[in-house]
Design a protein around this nucleic acid. Structure first.
Lengths: 353, 353
DNA sequence: CTGAAAGCGCTTACAG
DNA sequence: CTGAAAGCGCTTACAG
C-alpha cells in the first residue's frame, strides 16, 4: 500500500534499508560504502530505473558548474566571431539559473601564442567543461590532451581537429560546403568558363581549413560535362585590402576571362570591394559568412551567394552540449554538422544565425 | 551584516516584516492581502529586482503544466507533419522533468470538422497553453477566440492567421519564400522563357497560403529584364496522382515550351513523378519541403531545388515558446520567421529540419 | 562505513 | 488578512 508513495532516493533507501545519505554516496560513486551495500543499492536503482531529479539536485547543490569558452576575439578584420559569442551568451542566459557560470576567454586568431596563453589560464581555474574554436591545430591538440588528463570534456566548434577524445564537434562539413558552392556556381557558368578560387589567410594553420573547402569545390567539377577551367590564387600572409587588391589585379590581368570567383572564407567582402572599385561587377562572386559588409555587397548584387553555417547556433549548441553532458547526463553526438545555408539577396533578411 | 545572508522570498519577508506565505501571495497575485502590505512587498521586490528561482518553484509546486498540440495527422498523401511532431516530442523530452505534460491532438487536413472536433476536446481539458497549426482560417480564429476567453496562450506554427491575440507565430514568411524561389529560378531561365506555377490543394483554405507564395514568386519577375512568361494551373480538389497527371498533360500539351515548373507546396514530388514518367525531365522543377519522395527526385536530378523551412524546429520552438512564456516568464517575439533554406542534391544530407 | 539533520528557495494546505 | 509548518527530491556537513 505504501509502496509507491515514496520516490527517488527515499524509496531506494527504504528498499535497501539504509539512509538516503548512503544512497547519495553510491549515486555519486563516492568512497566509503561497503561493497555489499553498494551492490544492493545499485541493483535497486536499476530495477526502479532511477532517474535523478535535476531540479532538486541543482537546487540542493551549492556547487556551481564552470564552463570556459576559448574563441577568437572579434577583430577589425572580421566580425565573424561576434555570432558564436552571441550564441554563447544566449545559452548562458538560459542556463545560469541552473547554477552554471561561463568564463569567456579570447585569443588573437593571428597569434598562436595568445591561444596557448589563454588555454593555460583556463587550466589554472577549476573548470568543468570547455568550448573551443580550435583554429591552430597543434596547439589545440596539446590543449585537448591536457583537458583529457584533467577529465574536462571539450566541445569544438567551427572547425574540427582529428581527435577522438573530444566530446563533440559542432560546425560545418567543410568539404561538403565547398562541394555545394560548386553546385551553385555550376548554374552561373557556361561550358569551358574560367573560375578563380581565392584563399585569403594570414595564418597558415587556418589555411588548412580553407583547403578542405577548395577540395570540395574542385571535386564537384571533376569529370563534369561543363569542363570548366579552375585556377586559384592564395593571398597570404598579408591580407589587408591593399595586398588583396594588388594580387587580384595581377591575376585578373592575366586571366581576363574569369567568370566566377569563389572565395573560401568571409574575406569575400574584400574581393567584392575590389570588383566594385574596378568596374568588374560582371564577375560573379560567391563566398562565406554573414557579415555586415558582405551583406551590403549582396544587396548591391556584387556578391551573388554567401554560404553560411549558423555561427551563432554553433556557440549556443556548443554550450548546451556541455550542459546536456554535465548536468543532464545525456548521450552526445560526436559530430554534429551544421546545415549549409545559402544566403541571397532574397532571404538574408530572415536569416537566423 | 546579515543583510545579504537571506535571499529570495525570505529576504523580502524579512524586510517587509511579514511571513513568506504573504510574500508568496503577492508574487502570485492572489487575493487576501491588505493593500498596504501588498504595496510594501511589491516595492521591496522591485528594489531587490527579485527573480524567482524557477528550480525551487517547479520543485515545490506539485502542479503539472499541460500543453496541448493540434496539428494535422501524418497522411498517406504527405509525411510533412512528421517533422513538427518530432520537434514537439523532442521539446517534450527536454522539459518533462520540469513537470510539463503535452497532450497531442491531430486533425485531418482535408476535413475542417475534424479540426473543430479536436479543438473542442482540448477546451474541455484544463490546458495551460496550446500549439496550433491553423490551416483552416475561420475555424482557427474561432478556436483562438475561445482560448483567449479562457486565457490560454496560443502559438501558431507553419502558417499564420491575422490575429493579434495569439502569443506568437513561428513559421515561414510565405511571400518571401516565393520571392526567393523566383530568384533561384531566375538562374535557370533565359529571356522570354516560360514558367509554370502549379498549386495543388484539396482544401480551398490551404489554397490561401499557396497564393501568398505565388504572389511572392510573381512579384520577383515584375518589371524584370528577363521578361519571362508566367502561366499557372490549379489542381483541386482532387489531388491524387491520376488527377494531377491528367491536368499536367493538358497544360504541357498546350504549352510545350515550359522551361521551369514551380510547385507551391510539398506535392512537388507528384509533379516530379509525372515528369519522369513522361520523359520530361529536361523541365526544371522547384518546390517545397523535405519529404523522402522529393529527396529521391532531388538525387535523380528531376527536382532541382526544394525550399524548406525547418518544420521540426517549428514544432520544437513552438513548445519551447510556451515553456518560456509560462514557466520562465520571458518576453516572446510575436512573429518569428523561420529561415528559408534551399535544399539541393549537395546539401540535403546534412540538412536539419 | 553509516545515519540523522539541516537546508536549497519555493508552494501548499491549515489554523487562526 | 496573515503566519507557521511541512514538504518538493536532492546535497552537505557532521557525528559516530
Amino acid at each position: 500500500m505504501k509502496d509507491n508513495v515514496l520516490i527517488g532516493v527515499k524509496e531506494i533507501a527504504r528498499q535497501a534499508n539504509v539512509s538516503i545519505g548512503t544512497v547519495d554516496r553510491v549515486i555519486h560513486d563516492r568512497t566509503g560504502v561497503a561493497e555489499v551495500t553498494r551492490k544492493k543499492i545499485l541493483a535497486i536503482m536499476k530495477e526502479l530505473d532511477y532517474q535523478p531529479n535535476i531540479l532538486a539536485r541543482r537546487l540542493a547543490s551549492k556547487k556551481v558548474l564552470r564552463f570556459a569558452t576559448l574563441i577568437p576575439a572579434v577583430s577589425s578584420e572580421t566580425e565573424f566571431w561576434e555570432a558564436p559569442l552571441k550564441g554563447i551568451q544566449q545559452a548562458e542566459a538560459e542556463i545560469k539559473q541552473f547554477g552554471i557560470v561561463i568564463d569567456k576567454y579570447f585569443y588573437n586568431q593571428n597569434d598562436k601564442q595568445s591561444f596557448v596563453d589563454q588555454s593555460k589560464k583556463i587550466l589554472k581555474t577549476n573548470v568543468d567543461g570547455v568550448l573551443v574554436a580550435p583554429i591552430f591545430i597543434e596547439e589545440s591538440l596539446a590543449f585537448s590532451k591536457l583537458c583529457n588528463l584533467a577529465k574536462i570534456p571539450q566541445v569544438f566548434i567551427n572547425s574540427d581537429i582529428p581527435n577522438e577524445s573530444r566530446l563533440s564537434y559542432i560546425g560545418p562539413d567543410l568539404f561538403q560546403s565547398g562541394h555545394l558552392s560548386a553546385h551553385i556556381v555550376n548554374y552561373l557558368v557556361a561550358k569551358h568558363d574560367k573560375i578563380l578560387i581565392v584563399n585569403i589567410s594570414k595564418e597558415i594553420d587556418s589555411y588548412h581549413h580553407l583547403l578542405r573547402k577548395e577540395k570540395g569545390f574542385i571535386s564537384y567539377f571533376e569529370g563534369h560535362e561543363k569542363e570548366v577551367q579552375i585556377i586559384k590564387t592564395d593571398i597570404t600572409p598579408e591580407t589587408d585590402y591593399a595586398s588583396i587588391s594588388i594580387k587580384l589585379r595581377v591575376v585578373l590581368a592575366e586571366h581576363t576571362d574569369v567568370k566566377v570567383i569563389f572565395v573560401t572564407n568571409s574575406r569575400v567582402f574584400s574581393v567584392a570591394q575590389f570588383l566594385e572599385k574596378n568596374g568588374l561587377s560582371h564577375i560573379r562572386l560567391v563566398g562565406y559568412d554573414f557579415l555586415t559588409e558582405s551583406i551590403a555587397y549582396l544587396k548591391k548584387g556584387i556578391i551573388d551567394f554567401l554560404i553560411c553555417q549558423k555561427p551563432q547556433e554553433q556557440g549556443h549548441k556548443g554550450i548546451m552540449t556541455l550542459y546536456q553532458n554535465l548536468v543532464l547526463n545525456t548521450e552526445i553526438e560526436a559530430t554534429y554538422y551544421m546545415p549549409i545555408d545559402i544566403i541571397t539577396k532574397e532571404n538574408y533578411k530572415s536569416y537566423r544565425n
